[in-house]
Simulated scan of single mutants.
Amino acid sequence: MTTYTAFPDVQIIILLFSWVGLFIVANSAADNFYDDVDLTWGDHRAQILDEGKSLSLTLDKASGSGFRSKREYLFGRIDMEIKFVAGDSAGTVTAYYLSSEGPYHDEIDFEFLGNSSGEPYIVHTNVYAQGNGNREQKFYLWFDPTKNFHTYSIIWNLQSIIFLVDNIPVREYNNEEAIGVPFPSKQPMRVYSSLWNADQWATRGGLVKTNWSCAPFTAYYRNFNANACVASCTDCSSKMSAQGLEANGRRLLRWVQKYYMIYNYCTDLKRFPNGRPRECRRSRFM
């Protein structure tokens, strides 16, 4: 059985506190789910609770469930605290992502792949631009995400997209439009989340199926915060030019990628036998 490991280096803890000090914005201005989201599918399986302070999504054998933000955003930072399905969650996927509409959509994905009891969740990240994805990176988490709420964040601007877990950067995807690589820079996106059954691929490539005797499966949400430009209302230029990672953030990113990364499309030679994608040749941190 795989266990959750603690921080392996005291220096990383020091870096974490200095980095987080720059980014304590999550939870400071959390809104009300009644005002912020629409429950889009799943009937009673999606519920807003605690007078709008929290929300739950449930999956049973008949259906999953989901919600989306009422507003569209163009650049900024999105935070959400989530507590994932506990116990035997094999086959289930909790998706939390930004997406535009239409066939040539842009998308910035977190997907959390369930597990047999006691095994780490896998965090699957991806970036779509103009309808094309195939830019996956996957990680284990350094904690059990079913025991408590943790904050999952996306920072999106013209320079880069940064994925964060509890304010620790796990991935930075840079804008390489200058060399012909599409980047989600023009279409506004809504925030989406869903809990659904994907046992054909989610756990050990589909070898472990959903144990429906453990259903219903439920994930919980709170403290949604969008420090982002509402595309239909304001000039978004102030959110477009924010900087990428600085020195401490890059050290933390290297720590995550050294100890917890389990897949990087940039190093998948079987998938790209004719050479790595162009953006992979420009940076170690994609």
Rank of each mutant, 00 (worst) to 15 (best):
S238F: 10
F17Y: 06
K186R: 10
S232D: 15
T146K: 00
L158E: 14
L16C: 06
Y263V: 07
L22E: 13
V191I: 15
R77Q: 11
L141I: 06
F272V: 02
L39V: 11
Q243P: 13
Q200W: 15
W201C: 03
D79M: 01
R278M: 10
V85S: 07
P277C: 04
C233D: 14
H124E: 07
L245A: 03
V181S: 11
G118S: 05
N211F: 07
G91P: 06
R77G: 10
M189Y: 02
G91H: 01
A242Y: 07
V230E: 08
Q47D: 14
F217D: 05
P182A: 00
E101G: 04
Q187R: 03
R276G: 12
G52T: 02
C229Y: 10
Y192D: 11
F84N: 01
A129M: 05
I108N: 01
P145Y: 01
M80W: 03
A30Y: 12
G66C: 10
Y152I: 09
N134S: 14
N211C: 06
F183C: 01
R271I: 01
R251C: 08
N27K: 14
N197Q: 06
S213N: 10
G91K: 00
I48H: 06
E101K: 06
L55D: 08
K83F: 08
N148M: 09
L59S: 08
A6C: 09
C229F: 08
A231H: 12
L22T: 09
V37W: 07
R281Q: 13
Y73H: 01
T267I: 11
W201E: 10
K239F: 15
M240E: 13
A228E: 10
E101W: 08
I12T: 11
R222W: 09
M80P: 09
W255N: 01
D199G: 00
S153I: 04
S194W: 02
F17G: 07
S232R: 00
D88H: 04
E51K: 08
A247F: 15
K209Q: 13
G102K: 00
S213A: 13
E81G: 00
W255K: 00
S241E: 13
Q200A: 15
K258F: 14
S283R: 05
E81D: 13
N175H: 03
K83H: 05
A242V: 04
R77A: 12
I262L: 14
N227R: 05
A29C: 09
V208Q: 03
S193A: 15
M240K: 13
K70V: 13
F224Y: 15
L141S: 06
Q137K: 10
G91T: 01
A202E: 11
G42A: 12
E72C: 00
K83G: 06
C236T: 01
V230I: 15
C233I: 14
I179K: 03
V85G: 05
M261H: 05
W19I: 00
F149M: 02
Y104R: 08
P273N: 02
N174P: 06
Y34L: 03
S241I: 12
S54C: 11
W196N: 12
A242T: 04
W201N: 02
V37H: 07
A231Y: 12
T218I: 09
M189W: 05
I78H: 12
I12L: 13
N132I: 15
W255C: 04
I78Y: 14
V93T: 02
F7N: 11
G131K: 00
P182D: 06
R271Y: 10
T92S: 13
E172Y: 00
M286W: 09
S241F: 14
V208A: 08
G131R: 02
